[in-house]
Simulated assay, not measured.
Amino acid sequence: MASVPGVSVPGGVAIVTGAASGIGRAAALRLARTGWAVAAVDVDAAGLDALAEQAPGVRPFVCDVTEQEAVGALVREVGRELGPPRRLVHCAAVADMGRLLDADPADTLRLMEVLYGGTLRTVRAVVPAMAAGGGGQLVLLGSIGGWVPVPLGGAYGAAKAAVHYLAEIVAAEHRGDGIRVLCVCPPAVETPMLARIRRDSPELIGKRRGLSPEQVLDSMDRALARGRAWAFPGRGTRALWTARRLAPRVLSGLLGRVVVGK
């Protein structure tokens, strides 16, 4: 893994949220195996314990990222026990799919609370600790679904779009603190969350295979090494992002016909 100015690699302290499964679990394992001390964060205590058994460099921390006081206490505890964080990989996520206006608005807002609110709370707690330690890297998991509106994915996409905006603002406002921000925007990834979506909303994903978590992490590592602000893992993902910018109506019409048959 290439070094980045202001960040000691390997051997620093990394906080990984959503670490009990999926991309977060893969990230925690990769970081631990390359010399990082990893604070693995999730609400799933059993999943964290299983992860820690697999990698001695992983320390489990049970925390709900929707609770500001708990997140603040977590970051302080990590600082006391492991040292100041040099990297945050924020993967904590949930997903509910379906027609946006058919859902109870309270359920849609709860999704926003986890995806955007959880990201905001975690970043807000981590940035001062990073800045005090000389700087660091924030890796935030966005989604191509936050750039390209996909029918049946409106609630999830809106929350991820807010994460994208947060990434840009934090990068601009804290560059002088030595904070580098990377937002990773993959398409569907083969995780337990995608398995649930495939089961509950088969018309959205079908039998199409998603990327592996390792492919997402490879893209993340390349982007970090090159000092980029965005990563679009997977073949064609950047092209989708470009098409959304250049021909939004055409792309939206195509997606509508593919997903909901209109």
Score class of each variant (00 low, 15 high):
85 P>Y: 02
85 P>E: 05
87 R>G: 14
90 H>W: 15
92 A>C: 12
92 A>V: 11
93 A>S: 09
93 A>V: 10
94 V>F: 11
94 V>G: 02
95 A>Y: 14
96 D>T: 09
96 D>R: 03
96 D>G: 06
97 M>Q: 05
97 M>E: 14
97 M>H: 04
98 G>I: 09
98 G>H: 12
98 G>A: 04
99 R>A: 15
100 L>G: 02
102 D>W: 11
102 D>T: 13
103 A>W: 10
105 P>R: 00
105 P>S: 08
106 A>V: 10
107 D>G: 15
107 D>S: 14
107 D>F: 07
109 L>A: 07
110 R>T: 15
110 R>W: 11
111 L>C: 10
113 E>P: 02
114 V>E: 08
114 V>I: 10
115 L>Y: 02
115 L>M: 09
119 T>M: 07
119 T>I: 12
122 T>Y: 07
123 V>W: 13
124 R>Y: 11
125 A>S: 01
127 V>C: 06
129 A>W: 12
130 M>T: 08
130 M>G: 05
130 M>H: 05
131 A>T: 15
136 G>H: 03
138 L>T: 00
139 V>D: 13
139 V>S: 07
142 G>I: 10
143 S>W: 07
147 W>S: 14
147 W>Y: 07
149 P>N: 13
149 P>C: 05
149 P>R: 02
151 P>I: 00
155 A>Q: 00
156 Y>L: 01
157 G>M: 11
157 G>L: 10
160 K>S: 08
161 A>N: 08
163 V>R: 04
164 H>K: 01
165 Y>F: 13
165 Y>D: 11
166 L>N: 05
166 L>F: 04
167 A>I: 13
169 I>E: 12
169 I>P: 09
170 V>W: 03
170 V>D: 06
171 A>E: 14
171 A>Q: 12
172 A>I: 08
172 A>V: 06
175 R>P: 03
176 G>L: 15
177 D>H: 15
177 D>R: 05
179 I>D: 02
179 I>F: 13
180 R>H: 12
182 L>Q: 01
184 V>G: 04
